[in-house]
Design a protein around this nucleic acid. Structure first.
Lengths: 295, 295
DNA sequence: GGAAGCCATCGGGCGTCCCGATTGCGCTTT
DNA sequence: AAAGCGCAATCGGGACGCCCGATGGCTTCC
């Protein structure tokens, strides 16, 4: 039963029988009959089929909610028993927005320091993907913006508020300024993240409120590209404080704080809401709370 | 896996391998190996064993929480799919405190009127048992006091507040009084419920606050016994309004309202807290809300 | 019209589950 | 101290279900 629910979840995620089977390490016929049997046991058609996968039926959508809950709880049961067997151990999968990667790294390092038998996978993902992956049980927790998208049934632990810095070469005209207003950035050659990324949308809003348009001459989905561009030309970019400090370190770059908008851009840890928490997840939430920059 | 979790829950409930097996309709060896396999799969000893059942280990206690969640959600998945297949149908098991039985009856009747394909089992139980049975998945919902014991992870729907009446024969000295104070009951020959029942404890408290002792000459765990005693002798009893009206109807008995203590004694529907609700349970909660006596 | 992709079905081998019978252990009784 | 009894574990077998590779029917894309 649980195995079939896992098949169903994989199928809903992959939207394709073959790929779902591969992702579970079974063959396509096995998955096919598994879904059929699940449908028989529940007495309901879950999947719209032609000769191709055609999406879930309405009943399938409802069943998916329960399936995720059941399979998730089953994994949590296993995890917790393993933890009680061999101490706090296991594997945590995190998905993190690019601008919070240094924080994720710190969090993972500190956590691993305290609990050496817990290992990590840290993926860089867009904020919308993080919520999907949480739903699909592909990750155990994420780090993302807490105040933009509707978050759903999750627990959050605030970590910090993003404040931004202009990153430019040491020989740039603005390099020696103490602070800057967003309004002063209008005439610069900007490298920014691509518009589908939340961080870029936040920056766009700041520009808009300053009466400017955030026209980036170079866009990328990687912060490394942004900084390396700044190094090689007379470009500038805008990055959160911590990440800017990390990427600029040891390079001939200057960082100039931008007037911060304290209302928003709160970043924090996001985990599935559940009762009770497994020891490992509880420990992660605790570690995040310790790490949180005091407001 | 789920089957084994059901075995584990049954074992925790029955505290006895043989009885647990019978309650599941399987043999004792099957249950025995099932538990063993569950322990192997989780890598943890769940049950303390000598040559007898010796209680759950601490890990077993923790695992039981998850097992109940998983098995409960699995049943809810099945229920919901059946509902979407053949409309609102199925079976609801309620456990109800004795003094609320008439309300339970009304609730079940009205619900069945609206949804004829849903059938009911209504059990009379003490309030503490109701919570245990909810935990053990033996019932789907209960009717009990909302404000006395700690309720745990449940949803509640208030139904009414208990107000009490003295029940006596028509020829009793107090039969014609409009109202009574608790303090006036000190000298009467009382039949009351047994002290382990919550209703009796509430009445005890009322007596205590009136400076009296609630010494019952006859005790029973059945309200039928109480009323039939009142009929045959010069006894009196104390019952909630609705139940008193029901039991006294057509008999030579008088009902005299007692000064009510509006603070407490709230009675309502109790169901496991869960997200989302199955259609049947949602409908029951809705019906309870409609039925609730306006405060 | 041919090729490729996709899902369903088929048949066989293997694993697992369940049951009845029996054994082994510990407590109680005499 | 020995017998009796209740309880859980173990054993051996028969049956069922699951998984896989192979294949077939259908659709879509060149």
């Amino acid at each position: 039963m649980i195995a079939k629910l896992e098949m169903f979840i994989a199928l809903a995620r992959e939207q394709h029988f073959g790929r779902a089977a591969v992702s579970l390490g079974i063959t396509q016929p096995t998955l096919s009959t598994g879904i059929r049997q699940l449908e028989e046991q529940l007495g309901v058609k879950l999947v719209q089929r032609g000769s191709r996968f055609g999406g879930l039926t309405p009943e399938g959508q409802r069943a998916l909610v329960w399936a995720r809950q059941i399979v998730g709880d089953t994994r949590r049961l296993r995890d917790e028993m393993r933890a009680s067997r061999e101490g706090l151990a296991g594997h945590l999968r995190l998905a993190v927005i690019p601008t919070a990667l240094t924080w994720a790294s710190t969090l993972a390092a500190r956590f691993n320091d305290r609990h050496p038998r817990v290992t990590f996978t840290v993926l860089s993902r867009a904020s919308a993907d993080i919520l999907t992956m949480l739903d699909d049980l592909e990750i155990d927790a994420g780090i993302s913006y807490l105040d933009n998208e509707p978050l759903g049934r999750v627990t959050t632990r605030p970590l910090y508020r993003e404040a931004y810095q202009l990153v430019c070469r040491e020989d740039h005209p603005l390099a020696d300024r103490e602070t800057l207003d967003w309004a002063e950035l209008g005439s610069l050659k900007l490298c920014l993240l691509t518009p589908e990324m939340q961080n870029r949308r936040i920056i766009n809003r700041q520009f808009m409120e300053a009466g400017l348009e955030a026209g980036a001459a170079i866009e990328s989905n990687s912060t490394v590209v942004l900084v390396s561009n700044v190094l090689t030309g007379d470009w500038v970019t805008i990055l959160p404080t911590d990440l800017a400090g990390f990427l600029a370190e040891g390079k001939p770059l200057s960082l100039v704080p931008l007037a911060s908008d304290s209302r928003a851009h709160e970043v924090g840890l996001i985990a599935p809401w559940q009762e009770p928490y497994t020891p490992v997840l509880q420990a992660l939430l605790d570690e995040a709370q310790r790490l949180a920059r005091p407001a």
